[in-house]
Design a protein around this nucleic acid. Structure first.
Ligand SMILES: NC(=O)c1ccc[n+]([C@@H]2O[C@H](COP(=O)([O-])OP(=O)(O)OC[C@H]3O[C@@H](n4cnc5c(N)ncnc54)[C@H](O)[C@@H]3O)[C@@H](O)[C@H]2O)c1
Ligand SMILES: NC(=O)c1ccc[n+]([C@@H]2O[C@H](COP(=O)([O-])OP(=O)(O)OC[C@H]3O[C@@H](n4cnc5c(N)ncnc54)[C@H](O)[C@@H]3O)[C@@H](O)[C@H]2O)c1
Lengths: 208, 208
DNA sequence: TAAACACTGTTATTTTATTAACAATATTTA
DNA sequence: TAAATATTGTTAATAAAATAACAGTGTTTA
């Protein structure tokens, strides 16, 4: 299948998230317009995305939620699970760890790294914390292909460079520092200050 | 000034973030292509965004960073500071609180709320934590216009509805639950599982 | 069972966002 | 000082994303 646009991948992930909660609530079928309204988008957008991944319901009773979840998984998940590590087990690292662990069967959180001796060698928020100096060994040994970066800003660049050198193929950067990676590595950055400033901007504009 | 596209607002926030760190490093001027490469975008994009907010450097030695930061502030910040509260002081709420507090002069984190008696009445991660039952009073008393929602999924919807009823105008939702708000309220949602699934998708595609 | 209806899948259109192109102009170099 | 260079601001072109339109087809209803 042709590589999907990033936006579509995001929406597919979101579809699956809400579909999984619907399953747990006992729902079996869903119409495009229902799914759309849950995501604040249009029904056409939903149908278009599903067309892109070649899913078609056949019946006119909406989509079979289980089949749809499975189809989305076949498209966006890796066939063999990918291993993930968190670097920097501070406030955010621990929050992410306890939240993310076990959420997706095709993404295994297998390690965390820190340079604080109080933390290394222990299991923190459900995952073993290694000394950051062991990063090279462990990335190779555990075949870690994705890192979530939550170290202090001053260490972000060097830590990322190291991880890439050791073979990591994807980086989710939560630090405030904008990073650089070679084109063979996929980088996604998120800064919550940007999100809240965006909210603030539209609030400001609406109450003017 | 006409309302800016959301994408532009996001980039303006990002420009400011990197510009602020450059100032602290003693840099005074920056070229469009330098700023662009820090954000992994093109120089044209930068110039276009700045055109939209009516900033022009005049000189050909790049943009005066201080003036640019100030100009961005005049456009995206509220004239009078907006007050913000975090609801749900668990792992994520505390991380966000300690990170965000004091970051922006026009956004004051003035309160947090929780329903756990162990937490209420104390100062946690630098901000006073109130009982969630006091939300109505405090939102009105402190004039809170934005909330950051980090309660457990099951409480997300009702908590958001309450906050909106009590007068909140913007919501940044970090829970996994997709919310609904009236059109007068601005809602921004972020799920980190989506981000990491996106990374995983492009990693998978690249190593195929 | 025939008409009305509801929903999907897909093509066409519109809108939005990004990139390219380039004239204008300050700065540097010869 | 004149030519070459570098950078901006802006218009034009392109690309990407979202939406609209609608034919096709089960399903329901009378
Ligand atoms: N807390 C948030 O909500 C939040 C939000 C957005 C971004 N951030 C960013 O995320 C990063 C972490 O934030 P935090 O609040 O968790 O900070 P924190 O100080 O609580 O955590 C940082 C952790 O990294 C460890 N560390 C330091 N140097 C290291 C190194 N060289 N290698 C490995 N580990 C190292 C520290 O021991 C600590 O455990 C920061 O860059 C911050 O700007 C945080
Ligand atoms: N931890 C993460 O990195 C992360 C990432 C993405 C999303 N989330 C989501 O954010 C939310 C919080 O995650 P967390 O890890 O901090 O969970 P948590 O359980 O540590 O924190 C939840 C907090 O909310 C409080 N609370 C419970 N009911 C409440 C109510 N009715 N009103 C006010 N406060 C209430 C609890 O006392 C607790 O302090 C969850 O919905 C989770 O799915 C978390």
């Amino acid at each position: 299948m042709k590589k999907l646009p990033g936006k579509t991948v995001e929406r597919l992930s979101e579809y699956r998230r809400v579909l999984l909660t619907l399953i747990s609530q006992g729902k079996n079928y869903i119409y495009s317009h229902e799914l759309a309204s849950l995501l604040h988008i249009t029904a056409v957008q939903v149908r278009r995305d599903l067309m892109l991944i070649g899913y078609s319901s056949g019946i006119r009773k909406g989509y079979d939620i289980r089949v749809l979840v499975e189809t989305i998984g076949r498209v966006i998940d890796s066939e063999t699970p990918l291993n993930v590590a968190i670097i920097g087990m501070g406030n955010l690292g621990r929050a992410v760890s306890s939240y993310f662990r076990g959420k997706r069967s095709k993404l295994n959180l297998v390690a965390s790294f820190d340079n604080d001796q109080q933390k290394t060698g222990k299991v923190i928020s459900g995952v073993r914390c290694y000394d950051v100096r062991e990063m090279e060994n462990m990335i190779k040994e555990l075949n870690i292909s994705i890192i979530i970066l939550t170290v202090p800003p001053d260490y972000a660049r060097s830590t990322c460079d190291d991880a890439v050198r050791f073979g990591v193929k994807g980086v989710l950067n939560f630090t405030t520092v904008s990073l650089n990676v070679p084109p063979t590595v996929y980088l996604e950055e998120y800064d919550m200050v940007t999100s809240i400033e965006k909210v603030a901007y539209f609030v400001k504009e609406s109450i003017r």
